[in-house]
């Protein structure tokens, strides 16, 4: 198990190195002088020259990359251009909020997606199946900023049940925190729910046609036992894969959702860094998001073993 995790992490190293190279290239190799970009409209030739010197932009590219990568290894993500605060602590401070949002979004997606997919598969070709298919695809197709705005209009403006935006830390007021999380989590979870429903349906159909399911039915096991104990557990593997693959999408979706609902999380940091032209922060959040997706996928691999005891990592 430990060996597997180690091997998986080491196997990912070349990709991770390339990820850092791409992030580095994002601000150094693309057209445009980063110093000029950073200074924006206030740029004068003297200021640009001074900043280039400060940022070490006059050194050869590989030296710049090496020194940046070395500081990354020491956990140093650079400093914000706005207040010179180190980026690392800012990231850690914003992360729990986004994790909470993503957790609830995932929960909603699972609670909606899996039963919908199971029902559609069990009643293949019925009106319920068609309904799930259409609703799931709509969930995938609706822009989450539009969905968020619709929910705010309905539940905050029309009905006045939930405040339209904002965030309260759970340890300050748990009830308010959960209430405020409801609409954003639903907004963020909808697309994932649609994807999960589709994959659960297809995976269940595949499994339900297998011999062991027929055997289980033939030996007189009750319908629900067959469906949940035999079929769903076997159908879960591809579904877990999809969830793993969609987590990057969840992180991307969080950027928009946090923007719509004014939640001060990781996604908000992405947008703020763009508008403040704070490239060290942008660089750090982009890199961090790729690392997060990578680590989550290692976790997903481990989950397989938990779901299916036949899979062992040694």
């Amino acid at each position: 198990m430990t060996l597997f995790v180690l091997r998986r992490l080491i196997g990912g190293l070349p990709t991770l190195v390339l990820v850092t190279l791409l992030v580095f290239a994002l601000t150094r190799v693309l057209p445009g002088d980063p110093a000029l970009l950073l200074l924006g409209e206030e740029a004068t030739p003297e200021l640009v020259a001074k900043l280039r010197d400060e940022l070490g932009l006059n050194r050869p590219l590989y030296v710049q990359y090496a020194s940046w990568a070395a500081s990354l290894l020491h956990g140093d993500f650079g400093r914000s251009l706005r207040d010179h605060a180190p980026v690392g602590p800012i990231l850690w401070q914003k992360l729990p909020t986004t994790l909470e949002l993503s957790f609830f979004a995932l929960l909603i997606a699972l609670l909606l997606g899996i039963p919908a997919g199971v029902v559609a598969a069990l009643r293949r070709g019925s009106a319920a199946d068609a309904g799930v298919t259409v609703v799931a695809l709509s969930g995938i197709s609706v822009p989450n900023f539009f969905l968020g705005i619709l929910l705010v209009y309905l539940f905050s403006i029309r009905l006045g049940w939930i405040p339209p935006s904002g965030y309260v830390e759970p340890w300050v007021d748990l009830r308010k925190n959960l209430l405020l999380m409801l609409l954003p989590a639903f907004t963020l979870g909808t697309a994932l729910a649609g994807a999960i429903a589709r994959f659960t349906r297809n995976s269940m159909l595949e499994v339900l046609s297998q011999d062991y399911v027929r055997t289980a039915r033939a030996k007189g096991l009750a319908g629900p036992v067959v469906v949940y104990k035999h079929a769903l557990r076997n159908a879960a593997i591809p579904v877990v894969t999809v969830i793993g693959l969609q987590l990057g999408g969840l992180l991307g979706g969080a950027v928009i959702t946090e923007q719509v609902f004014s939640i001060p999380g990781f996604g908000r940091l992405v947008v703020d860094s763009v508008f403040n032209r704070d490239f060290p922060v942008l660089q750090a959040v982009v890199l961090f998001s790729a690392l997060a997706v990578f680590l989550v996928n290692v976790l997903v691999d481990l989950l397989y073993a938990a779901i299916d005891p036949r899979i062992r990592y040694g």
């Binding site: 190279l21 791409l22 970009l37 999408g249 950027v255 763009v274 490239f279 942008l282 982009v286």
Partner: peptide, 24 residues
Amino acid sequence: MRLTDAMLAFPFLVLAIALAAVLG
């Protein structure tokens, strides 16, 4: 393919936002 993998490691939207921000 290593390059492709590395690009796929980024969340689609986060990378698109970063690129759009850098390009203007």
